[in-house]
């Protein structure tokens, strides 16, 4: 057990993965000598060699397509996409090849590729450096999509992702990279599986479902709400595809109220899917319509406006008031 930042915990996870399996190779832009623009792969090329930690040409489709070929050859590639907004050139290879090859070949060809994507806003960056593109991938059958919110999960889940025989999109909440926490590097049968949701705060009145960077925000909201005598249960979804609906459903059956929050835009997002699925599964247990607190359906705005785009503590509490039937910003609103 040692204190690590979330970024360092991914690094130690990758180090373990490289040690555990000689077929693991890392590919990406600037991941070698530089250690990645966020230093997640710091020291790995020095210790495992340029043959296993490979700096690549600046071509995301090329990185993803060659990873497919390496996987065909029996390797277990871990690809770093430098920033969320840079993943689109690789989109075709991910959705048309990586996601489908196992299905297409009737199980003959496996694609154990992990795609690491630093994502989300709140760091005052320029365009294309603050996006949350997870819904493009949760919509694609054949991919597993996960995200972490703590150093412990970051370490454990990256190792589970690399060990998984399916392709995994691993979204890293970049504004939480420097959060510190205890990390136990032992993985055993008691370790939570990558595709399970975790109840991070227990409560009785409202279920708040979130993931990645907003888990910390939801924890803060639970603390603030308790001052008003409202008890929030916070669920860190962790896996966005598949979703652990059993855990969410069990919670909502108790609380009768659901708020889903994420940074990504609302329309067609993960929140829409969770709200719809939970409504289908436990409509008669709901005391109020589910509420979504998300980024607006606009392109990610310039940094000076991002605080208005990103859900924060107050917007989350406002939605809690809404599902509780308390005075809120939409009270009496006719639109």
């Amino acid at each position: 057990m040692a204190v690590q930042t979330l970024a360092a915990a991914i690094g130690t996870g990758l180090r373990r993965a490289l040690q555990d399996d000689p077929r693991v190779v890392l590919l990406g832009e600037d991941i070698g000598r530089l250690g990645g623009v966020f230093r997640v792969t710091d020291g790995l090329q020095r210790d495992f060699g340029a043959d296993r930690v490979m700096d690549t040409p600046l071509a995301e489709a090329g990185i993803m397509g060659t990873a497919v070929g390496l996987a065909y050859r029996g390797y277990r590639p871990v690809v770093e996409i430098q920033f969320d907004g840079f993943i689109y050139p690789a989109f075709d290879q991910i959705v048309a090849q990586v996601a489908k090859l196992h299905y297409r070949t009737g199980g003959a060809v496996r694609m154990p590729i992990t795609v690491r994507v630093p994502y989300g806003g709140g760091i005052g960056a320029v365009e294309h450096h603050s996006e949350s593109p997870e819904a493009y991938f949760t919509h694609t059958a054949g991919l597993r999509v996960v995200t972490c919110s703590s150093p412990q999960d970051a370490h454990t889940m990256i190792r589970q992702a690399v060990a998984c025989d399916d392709p995994v999109l691993f979204f890293e909440p970049k504004r939480r990279y420097w959060v510190k926490g205890d990390v136990d590097e032992v993985i055993d049968e008691t370790t939570m599986a990558m595709d399970r949701a975790r109840v991070v705060v227990e409560g009785d009145d409202v279920t708040v479902v979130t993931y990645g960077p907003l888990v910390a925000t939801a924890r803060d909201a639970a603390l603030a709400a308790s001052d008003d005598g409202i008890s929030l249960e916070v669920i860190d979804l962790r896996s966005l595809a598949p979703v652990d609906y059993e855990t969410v459903e069990a919670s909502v059956r108790r609380t009768g109220r659901l708020v889903v929050t994420h940074e990504a835009q609302q329309h067609g997002g993960v929140g829409a899917e969770v709200a719809a699925s939970i409504t289908e599964r436990c409509f008669h247990h709901l005391e109020a319509a589910p509420a979504r607190v998300t980024g607006f359906d606009v392109p990610y705005p310039p940094a000076a406006l991002e605080d208005h785009f990103l859900p924060d503590l107050d917007r989350l509490l406002d939605a809690v008031d809404r599902v509780m039937g308390r005075q809120n910003s939409l009270s009496g609103w006719r639109g």
Partner: peptide, 30 residues
């Protein structure tokens, strides 16, 4: 897919134009 790629040393054909050239390159790197 018509066949098991590993049984004949030939991948399932790619219908997306050109995508397979990257797969070949990655395989060769392997």
């Amino acid at each position: 897919s018509g066949w098991d790629p590993y049984a004949v040393g030939m991948a399932t054909p790619s219908i997306i134009i050109g995508a397979q050239t990257l797969h070949a390159t990655g395989y060769a790197m392997g």
